[in-house]
């Protein structure tokens, strides 16, 4: 049970990192994610079936997501379409594209195919028993992606991207084209989501056009639960808490799925539960941010007072 929750949390945590980039860093609520997740799964599935090396499949999935994100950003940039609508357009178009990628069908089973997981399992299988080797694999993958993202957000480009959601005028004033920033940010985000989709296809043993439904909301819920867990503005903590939030979210979903019948909850109610979670986080953060803000203010006033007394010394 616990390893199942952790594996799902880490796997969908990669997706949540993508959602975090658009919703939180860029302030670009991007809904194309619902289409790029199955796109990644479909690309990976087709790559596996056609006997391409697994790593090539993963990279192709990432590239596919990148391209889809670039389409959303371009629709928004060049046609002046609001970002929400641009995402919905891409998402809708991707449904058809995903079916084409899958070869004209909605579902592609990957049973009896060698997967990254089975490869990894045979690599460490002697030492670590089955469910835990999967956990180790996803732990490594999530960690590598998290560290790479942290590094990226420390580069000059990453810092500028960080300023986008905060203050677009400042980015413009520094001679940077905000359209390029959106292209990079939304592209990167969807690349990560497609990557998560590719791993999900490997983990579940199939690729399905409908596996992306409601993914954006799940990712957003994870991001918000993470914010609820830890308060910080350091990028290393920000990405960490997205993954933690994802694990907690999957835990709550697990409880809803297996113990929900005590309160008459069926699996069909899980989406309602997700929405309620988001609303609850929103209410809580409103209440909390008021308090947190005044605490920070007091701290900064103290710091300012210290610095003035330090100055007269």
């Amino acid at each position: 049970m616990i390893e199942g929750i952790l594996v799902e949390g880490l796997l969908y945590g990669i997706m949540a990192l993508g959602v975090f980039i658009t919703f939180r860093i860029l302030s670009f609520p991007d809904l194309s994610v619902d289409g790029t997740f199955p796109l990644g799964a479909a690309i990976m599935g087709v790559a596996v079936v056609n006997g391409l090396p697994l790593i090539v499949g993963v990279l192709l999935a990432f590239a596919g997501g990148l391209a889809a994100g670039a389409v959303t950003a371009t629709i928004h940039n060049k046609l002046g379409v609001p970002n929400l609508l641009a995402g919905i357009l891409t998402m809708t178009m991707l449904w058809s594209i995903n079916i084409r990628v899958l070869g004209g069908r909605a579902n592609l089973p990957l049973m009896r195919q060698a997967t990254i997981l089975s490869r990894f399992n045979s690599l460490v299988g002697g030492v670590i028993p089955h469910p835990w080797s999967v956990l180790l694999f996803f732990l490594l993958v999530a960690l590598v992606i998290k560290v790479l993202l942290d590094l990226f957000f420390h580069t000059d480009l990453g810092l500028t991207l960080g300023a986008m959601g905060d203050n677009q005028q400042m980015v413009v004033s520094q001679g940077v084209n905000p359209e390029t920033m959106k292209l990079i940010g939304v592209g990167l985000s969807n690349g990560l989501v497609a990557l998560a989709g590719a791993f999900a296809a490997q983990f579940q043993g199939f690729a399905d056009v409908n596996m992306g439904q409601g993914i954006v909301v799940a990712g957003l819920a994870s991001v918000m639960i993470g914010e609820f867990l830890i308060r910080s503005s350091r990028i290393g903590i920000l990405t960490l808490r997205v993954i933690l939030g994802s694990i907690v979210f999957r835990g709550i979903m697990y409880l809803g799925r297996y113990y929900g019948y005590y309160i008459n909850l069926t699996p069909n109610d899980l989406r309602l539960l997700t929405g309620v979670l988001i609303v609850a986080s929103l209410i809580f953060s409103r209440y909390q941010s008021g308090r947190g803000e005044s605490a920070r203010l007091r701290k900064s006033i103290r710091a300012a007072a210290d610095s003035t007394t330090g100055g007269t010394r």
Partner: peptide
């Protein structure tokens, strides 16, 4: 005063972003 700086970023991050104009690459200059 809010238009010149990014509030949710640190002082040093803000200064790094503003030091050089134009497109920024994948270098860690800070």
């Amino acid at each position: 005063p809010l238009l010149g700086t990014a509030g949710s970023m640190t002082l040093e991050d803000n200064m790094m972003i503003c030091l050089r104009k134009g497109f920024k690459g994948l270098k860690i200059s800070l």
